[in-house]
Structure formats: C-alpha cells, structure tokens
Nucleic acid binder design. Sequence first.
RNA 1: CGGGGUGUGGCGCAGUCCGGUAGCGCGCCUGCUUUGGGAGCAGGAGGUCCCGGGUUCGAAUCCCGGCGCCCCGACCA
Length: 486
Amino acid sequence: MSDDKKLTPRAEDFSAWYNEVVQRAELADHSPVRGSMVIRPWGYGIWENMQRALDDMFKETGHENAYFPLLIPMSFIEREKEHVAGFKPELAVVTHAGGKELEEPLVVRPTSETIIYSMYAKWVQSYRDLPILLNQWANVMRWELRTRLFLRTAEFLWQEGHTAHATDEEAQEETLRMLGVYRRFMEEFIAMPVVTGLKSDAEKFAGAVRTYTCEAMMQDRRALQAGTSHHLGQNFSKQFGLTFQSEEGTEEYAWNTSWGVSTRLVGGLVMTHGDDAGIVVPPRLAPVQVVIVPIFRKDEERVAVVEKAHALKAAFAERGVRVRVDDRDHLNPGAKYYEWERKGVPFRLEIGPRDLAKEQVVLVRRVTPEGEDRKVFIPESEAIERMPALLEVFQGELLERARARREAHSHRGVNSFEELKEILEGPGGFVYTGWSGDPAVEERVKAETKATLRCIPDEDFRSEVTPTRCIGGGQATMEVMWARAY
RNA sequence: CGGGGUGUGGCGCAGUCCGGUAGCGCGCCUGCUUUGGGAGCAGGAGGUCCCGGGUUCGAAUCCCGGCGCCCCGACCA
C-alpha cells in the first residue's frame, strides 16, 4: 500500500485487495497458529446472521440441531476407504493426552460422517426410526498448506447436515432439497448468484456417491465452491452397520446424505460485493444496516444532535432496522464515513444542526446506482418510514449486479479446446462446453489450463443450444462448466 | 515438501554494502483548538534490532547455525 489509508485497488492486485479488506474491515485476523484465524466481531456478526437465516431454513425443512464431539477414533476415519484416502493428508491427530500416549490416536474431525453414522447405527432399528434429519454447527480442522482468511483456513466453522433415509429416492430428494436451500440462501441473503450442478467423479466428496455443488463467480472471475450437498448412498451405513428392519421385515442398509456450508461464505460475500472502498454487506446480513453519524461544532449542538440521533435510532429499531449511532468524539465525520464504508454498512445517515432545523436527514447509500446522487436530503419521517423498503431494494440490486457480472463473463457455445484455453488465459470466467464424460479430458484441461470442471450444471443453468461436441473431441453426452477456482 | 524473499517500537519501513548515540511515517497518550469526506498545534510514552554462537575495544550491521513469516509450484469447504 503506497497510501496506507487506501486499499490496493482490485484491478491492481485482487488478492492483495482481499487480504487488506479482510484485515481493515476488521473481519478477521491471523492467529499465532499458522493457518488459523481469529474471527473479529464484525466478521462474526455477519456469520451469525448467516447462521440464523440458514438455521431457520433447516428447521423449516424439518431438521433439528444436535452436537457430536470434536475427537474421532482414527479407526473410524479409516473405515470408509475413499473417505480416508481423501482426508488422510490433512488430518490433525491427537496422540497424547493426560501425559500419556493414547492407545488409539484420535483425529480432530475434518468432517463428522463417521462418528455420526456410527451413532445413528445405535439409534435405528426399524423403518419407523427413519428418517433422521440432523444438523450440527461446529468447527472442523483440515491441515491445509496454502491458507487464506475465510477462504481456506486450517480450522473453520461450518454446519454439517447428516440424514438417514429408508430409500435411495428419499435420500436423493433430500440431497437436492438442501442444494435448493443453499441456492436460495445464497441468492436471497448473500445476494450471490450461484450455478448449481453435479460434480464429476474426480471432484466429488471422498466417500459420496454423488456431490452437488453451488458455484459462485468472484470478481476476479474465478469460481468459489460455496456449498455442497452429498448423496452418500449406503457407503457409510455399510461400514458402520446402520441398518433397519423394513416394513416387509427384511434388514436393509440406510441411505445417507450430508451437506455443508462454512465461514468460507464470508470470503465469498467479500469477493462478490466488495469494491475499492471496502466490503459491501447485503442488508439482510449486515450487523448494522444504518449507521448514524452526528455532526456538530459547539457543545450545545452536540447535545441536540446526538439526542436526535438516538431518537432516530429508536424509531428505526421499532421498524426492525439495525442501527448504530457513531457518537465517538475523537474522530471527525469524514473519518467515520471511511470506516463504515470499509465495513460495508448499507446506509449512512448524517445529521447536523442544519438538518435538525429542517427536520431532514442526509442519506448516503454504500453503493450509488448509476446516475443517482450520492447524498440525498430527505425528511426525517420519510427516512424512517422508507428504510425497510430501501434496504430491500438495495439487497435486490446487489443480486442483480452480481448476476449481470456473472453473465457478462460466462462463455457458452465453446467448442474447441483452443478457444477454451484462450478464454481461461485471457478474460477468464465460466466456460460451458460439451463433455463425453471421459476423465482423461478433464485431466487434460486441468493440466493445460489450470481450470477444473466445476459442475455439470442443473437445467436452470444449461445453454439454450445443447452442445453436441466434447471439448476433447468426439461426441458430447452432457454440458459442463469449467473455471479456475479457489 | 521444492524455488524466491523477508525478519528493526502496535503497523508500514529506512539504516546493513562500508561496524561507532537506533531513526522516519502512521497509530497511541495528555492538553488546547477543531468537527458537513481520512483535523491542526504543542508535549509525551513505547525497542531483548527473530534466536543462539562466533569475530571485534565495540555488532541491527561481518561470519556460522537455527527458527518464524510472506510469495510462487503438487492436494482441498
């Protein structure tokens, strides 16, 4: 940073911009342990709002919360062979406790399938005990080599849903239901449009039969895997003896699903909406939706203006608007403006002696739409009445803006490998092509372009003209989407 | 783990080549004046110069060894 007050512009160095924003908006900080982070109140406030919204959606779809322990016997992880192969390199293992070496090492959970399904096996006897629809909010640990705040840390917070069903069809339905919940949450709350679809075998979760994903496009046009929903088939139920007696009296293995989103979503929010002034928090997730900055010269002005600010706060609060009055007196107004812009508060309301006299306020939106005035003077009563609606309009515009940007950088109808490579090495973005399903083609694209097959898009995201030619040559059997990813 | 860089008040850095009083900007504290887009002035606090060893009258600086962190390449929410 040449000027230590300004952020590195996104266009100059996107990743430096990201790091600075996270630090200077006080979202998170590095902890003394390499790769793990401290989530600061502003970042945690955003996460709490995400949790609340998601938790409500999980409850609406019939799920309950529970909690399973942090430590898992090593032998459990090793039970499902693809699962262990997927996680082995990134496990943190406890070998000593109570001053002695443990007989069996304990793994700090990288995810909880094994411990959860082993418990389900104890609880389920009959088809009448199914389905089990549980979720847990927890921390997990994966010993990553390259870490970045929120996007990839050794320890992160997430939720993991784990369900057990009597039939394959029911599990499949659940897998897709939760994928839909995620999509809706990301669009309606984070205002982050996603492409949903199926992962290829090479990219799916270790231990799953099928993995569905939500892929979002960041402002540097790279993809972010924002959430996944897995159909686990009977892989875990077979390893942990999760069986039930069917209506017909036969013994059957249950069908499982698991699905999760993490604090990575905070990173996604930053990279979706942030600008060169800082982050932009969508109103529905903002810990503070309106910040009131009182302006005054003399002491008597100060008293009157601050009093008015608190009265306004109360009026907003009555309408369910989250407000903070910034009455710190060692900072001048300009300094406060910059700070709250950096933190992404959707609306700022300035109130000074001149406004007091006219019973008006100055309203400033965090993002000013093209052709509109940055500051608007409106009557106090109108600001109070209209704020809930203004917040919703802003929320909607963020989604539309992000969607437009994604569409502008989505490339469809790409037929040749050369064209694919050219796009990925040039403008970047999401590239849609045909694919035969041959893993060798996937491997080649990855090796030569650094892009991966993000997903086989769901119907909503497929091109109007279905590709017939595979990007690796020959006949296509499906359409796929490629991108460089986080 | 392989390649490159870096370690000096809270943060960002200069000083290291050529050994000799540890400095600058920001931040912090106190006071006064300020406050409608990052305030000004005055005074002040704050350092095992990453660690260990060596050379020297004397080491942030030179030599040897270690450690940490950052960036780039193979796995990942």
